[in-house]
Simulated assay, not measured.
Amino acid sequence: MTLTDGRIYLASRSPRRFELLRQIGVNFEPLLLREALPRQADVDEIRLADENPIDYVSRIARAKAEMGRLRALQRRLADLPVLAADTAVVLRDRIFGKPKSFADAEKMLGTLSGQTHQVLTAVAVTTQNGTHVRVSASTVRFRDIGEREIRSYLAGTEAYDKAGGYAIQGIAAVFIPEIAGSYSGVMGLPLFETAQLLEESGIPIFS
């Protein structure tokens, strides 16, 4: 079903999030934030001391959405709702973000091998009336993954811009015998929570 009314900005560069929003017929425009050098990132994603993982992803998603709206207004763009999301892979309170190198990704996957971890994705929508946030929590079980398998997997490109160093929708699916929760949330944008937030913000999914 395609929206007949309403547009939003998506404060993300993620092709997976583009694909998922298109899947539910959302009319969106990418709104790019600064993420790295040479200029300072628009949102500092460093975890605060004693910050629990749910609070962390919620804070980062909120910050991205609110910064996206600020940047849209500074650029004199249309004042549209801004949607943003943040995903973290969590094992025993340790947060795994995107790997910085082959060695980093190899260490992440070795740690996750044979373990059940949690994937948290927070979604935030900011409008002129404020910001609302929802969090999706899923569990993913990895089978034991051998060192040779990990290195073979990392010889490709899909791991390096993904939290935890893997893509459930890609080759890494062969490592995963079980998932409980939201498949789209593990991909990076839980569609159930996203649809709820958009409806609350006046952007109907079905009309």
Results as ranks from 00 to 15, higher is better:
Ala105Asn: 04
Thr4Trp: 12
Val133Met: 05
Pro15Phe: 10
Thr127Lys: 03
Ser152Lys: 11
Ser101Asn: 11
Val43Pro: 00
Leu154Gln: 02
Lys107Met: 05
Ala159Arg: 00
Thr87Asn: 02
Pro177Ser: 08
Val125Asn: 01
Gln196Phe: 11
Ala159Asp: 02
Gln74Cys: 14
Thr4Lys: 15
Glu193Pro: 02
Val89Ser: 01
Thr2Phe: 11
Leu21Asn: 04
Pro30Ser: 07
Arg69Met: 14
Ile60Pro: 00
Gln169Ile: 07
Arg7Ser: 13
Ala78Gly: 08
Phe28Glu: 03
Arg76Trp: 11
Arg151Tyr: 08
Ala41Trp: 08
Leu120Val: 03
Arg134Cys: 06
Arg71Leu: 15
Tyr160Pro: 05
Asp55Pro: 03
Pro204Asn: 15
Pro99Glu: 13
Gly110Asn: 11
Ala180Met: 15
Tyr56Lys: 04
Asp144Trp: 07
Phe192Tyr: 13
Tyr183Pro: 05
Leu80Thr: 09
Ala36His: 12
Ala63Arg: 03
Ala172Met: 07
Thr127Ser: 10
Ala195Phe: 09
Leu3Asp: 11
Val57Arg: 01
Ile203Phe: 10
Phe18Trp: 03
Ser113Ala: 14
Leu198Trp: 01
Glu29Val: 14
Ser152Gln: 15
Leu10Ile: 14
Leu77His: 09
Phe206Pro: 02
Gly170Ala: 08
Ser12Ala: 12
Gly188Arg: 03
Ser138Ile: 05
Ser182Trp: 05
Pro38Ser: 13
Ile46Gly: 02
Thr116Asn: 10
Asn129Leu: 12
Tyr160Ser: 06
Ala155Met: 11
Glu158Ser: 11
Ala172Ser: 11
Thr116Lys: 13
Pro177Tyr: 10
Val125Asp: 04
Ile8Glu: 12
Asp104Val: 06
Leu112Val: 13
Tyr56Ala: 11
Gly114Asp: 11
Glu35Phe: 06
Ile46Gln: 09
Ser138Trp: 00
Val140Arg: 06
Phe192Ala: 09
Ala78Gln: 12
Thr194Tyr: 00
Arg39Ala: 12
Phe18Asp: 12
